[in-house]
Design a protein around this nucleic acid. Structure first.
Lengths: 234, 234
DNA sequence: CACTACAGATTGCTCAACAATCCCTCAATC
DNA sequence: GATTGAGGGATTGTTGAGCAATCTGTAGTG
């Protein structure tokens, strides 16, 4: 009888892993999702003011609900909220870029260094992201290459095994996307790093934490310099 | 004439530094502030549901405004929001405690290690926090000792020179405060670490980044173990 | 004892309204 | 001519009421 009740040990756990997908979203959260994609895809220029009336009308939600969504996105630093003036699309400064890369270096490098915490699943995710990037570079658009690159770095951060580091990483990358769009030629920004990704992935798979961290730090330094340069030049 | 107009070069900059104090807060933010203090001071037990009507009435604000405040605090992880069920005071699990300390180790240790980024001002803040703790231990309550301890670790994180690390640290410590209150004897939790603080501060002042980081990691390990133990026991 | 149905309470969201604030324009002043 | 001050229109901040959707506990049914 008990065998019948538990045909696959642990299936309850596998169910509970999907509960986040099951958890419906409130209207405010769905509105925030819509706006978030628009923002990170660069459809709305940094500095633009988002009118409550206009957007509430366009999305057919009440102003109050829209304001809840604004609060969420402001907390994610994608929007800035100025009292009595409204919300604006975040405009990153050079200092922001420098700080973002500083935090990335801290999080990603320490995650990569801690080989003791690696799990096979997450290491596989790193490799998968490398493949995704190579496929995207061969077949298709720079947009996909960029996305694959994000997945790669998210996978690196996930090596830490820390939910909070994961969430942080998501947030940092979302912020960074705001600045990628000011680059003149985005495809030329991401592609050169595909080789680095593969190399770092190899070091991770070999559990060479220190060397992987060093390579990653160098990687991030170059990317930062490139962005800062594009910033001060443009 | 020009001398009269600019008696102290750069005074405009010093003005603009204080503009954050001038920025008024919206009602929702003030409400969030009030609730935040109540939460981190442990006045409301974790798990408690916060009724919108009751609290809106008590604070004399509308439900809409209160909900905005709830969103802010949920994003800071002090409250959890369950759709159609309401908001609850966050209940930290053992896994949360472990993760919080994992992130603290990453942030604080890397900040302390990067001696190149130290500035005299922030190093002084570390020393000041040590003094604050010693004074509090001599004169007064454990509450103050705990606060001084927070200041110490905030100052350590500030050594990174990163605004985002600072904000993160604030958030992590606010979260941790939720769990400090479940400890039976809070004063006995913080006091033993005063000696460690002084020692680490000395290493920081001597720019012994690596040794300071090692001492700090050991410190955090012990604190984590103590908390985890209190958790599984109680 | 398990399961269903109902009722009360609470949240989710909307709408309309008004106060407070900002921003722009146009004079007025020095 | 540049700065200051006073409207006036537009936008945000906040409120309160109202209704639909959902949850929770209870009572009833098999």
């Amino acid at each position: 009888m008990e065998k019948l009740l538990e045909p696959q040990p642990g299936w309850v756990d596998s169910l509970s892993e999907t509960r986040s997908a099951l958890a419906r979203l409130s209207t405010a959260e769905r509105v925030a999702d819509v706006l978030r994609t628009h923002l990170i895809e660069g459809r709305i220029l940094p500095g633009t003011r988002l009118s409550e009336d206009t957007i509430a009308g366009a999305l057919a939600v009440s102003r109050n609900t829209l304001r809840e969504a604004f609060r969420l996105l402001a907390h994610e630093r994608l929007l800035v909220h100025e009292l009595n003036r409204g919300v604006f699309v975040r405009q990153l400064t050079v200092d922001d870029v420098i700080d973002l890369y500083r935090v990335r270096r801290i999080l990603e490098c320490s995650a990569v260094r801690a080989t003791a915490q690696y799990t096979p699943g997450v290491v596989a995710r790193v490799r998968a992201a490398v493949h995704e990037g190579e496929t995207a570079a061969r077949d298709g658009g720079w947009q996909e290459v960029g996305t694959a690159n994000m997945h790669f770095h998210l996978a690196l951060a996930a090596l830490s095994g820390s939910p909070r580091v994961n969430e942080l990483m998501h947030q940092l990358l979302a912020e960074l996307r705001l600045v990628f769009h000011v680059m003149a030629r985005p495809q030329q920004f991401h592609e050169p790093y595909l080789g680095d990704n593969a190399r770092i992935c190899g070091l991770v798979e070999a559990r060479e934490g220190e060397r992987a961290a060093a390579a990653l730090a160098d990687y991030l330094d170059r990317a930062e310099q490139q962005l800062v340069h594009a910033f001060t030049a443009g």
